[in-house]
């Protein structure tokens, strides 16, 4: 009788502990859920961009971004600058590749041709913004280890959000060398799995920049996107503010949008 009771107690404790473990998601699972929840087939966003330097001088830019999922977790991206005049028509194409380096091409109108970019260049800032080429690439979950550091109440836009604080570390030596960051720390709210804030740490583990996302809105089903973003680069004393003016998701975008021919025929500026 006593033996049976002990077995029952051990069994119940085992089941209970197992259920507790399953309730505690890993960092990787949170990221997978986030990716799944906010995934769209296609997206076109028109953005205004403001660059603010140390002295407070401002530059305004207009950008249009295209994105399309062409296979399972395989995306293509196109970013086009519409203004100011000196960079009008500049375009960056990215093709995500599984198990290899992504293909990236930069089109500069003065050269009238595209140039393939090596990955070392991806640590560099894109066209004077505080976003590097790496920041503009899709998040490949296999390239990072995600650890939940803690849960906390995060005050954002006058509200308190129950959030995961997740650390993203390069998963392997190759990625460690390629990446411009030693780590990133993300504040992801639990209810909607939106990233409210990301801190970027440089190779010396120094806090380099912070990205804050504001005014989240539902764009389709459970998919949410921020309307405004600030990337504050403490290292350079420089900020990039973006505001989305219009966004279309899950509309029909042709695969040809992500080709060189789309740019050379001038369609990217139409």
């Amino acid at each position: 009788m006593t033996k049976r009771t002990i077995i029952w107690i051990v069994g119940i404790l085992f089941l209970f502990s197992a259920s507790v473990v399953s309730a505690q998601m890993t960092g990787r699972q949170v990221m997978e859920k986030q990716k799944e929840r906010h995934k769209v087939k296609t997206e076109i966003g028109n953005e205004d961009m403001m660059l603010v330097d140390k002295s407070g001088a401002k530059e305004n830019r207009q950008v249009v971004r295209y994105a399309k999922e062409v296979g399972k977790d395989l995306h293509r991206y196109l970013v086009v600058f519409l203004s100011p005049g000196d960079i009008r028509g500049t375009a960056l194409r990215t093709w995500e590749k599984k198990g290899g380096d992504n293909d990236q091409w930069l089109y500069l109108p003065a050269q009238k041709k595209e140039q393939r970019i090596a990955k070392a260049g991806k640590k560099n800032y894109f066209m004077g913004t505080d976003f590097t080429y790496e920041d503009m690439e899709p998040e490949d979950l296999n390239n990072f280890n995600y650890n939940i550091l803690r849960s906390e109440q995060f005050n954002h836009e006058g509200k308190s959000y129950d959030s995961y604080v997740i650390e993203a570390l390069p998963a392997n030596e190759k990625k460690k060398q390629e990446s411009g960051y030693a780590k990133r720390i993300m504040w992801i709210e639990k209810a909607n799995l939106t990233t409210l804030k990301t801190d970027f740490y440089d190779k010396r583990n120094k806090h380099q920049k912070t990205q804050l996302n504001y005014k989240f809105e539902t764009v389709s089903g459970s998919v949410m996107r921020p309307k405004q973003t600030i990337m504050n680069n403490m290292e350079k004393g420089h900020k990039t503010v973006t505001a989305t003016r219009s966004r279309q998701v899950n509309t029909n975008i042709s695969d040809t949008t992500f080709t060189e021919q789309f740019i050379l025929s001038g369609k990217h500026l139409q």
Binding site: D48, L212, Y214, I230, V241
Partner: peptide
């Protein structure tokens, strides 16, 4: 940081972007 309220300059910047839009 426990808070990320857009303060001072950042708040102004966001407002400026709003107006522009």
């Amino acid at each position: 940081p426990k808070s990320s309220e857009p303060k001072g300059q950042e708040d102004d910047l966001l407002k400026e972007m709003d107006k522009a839009g």
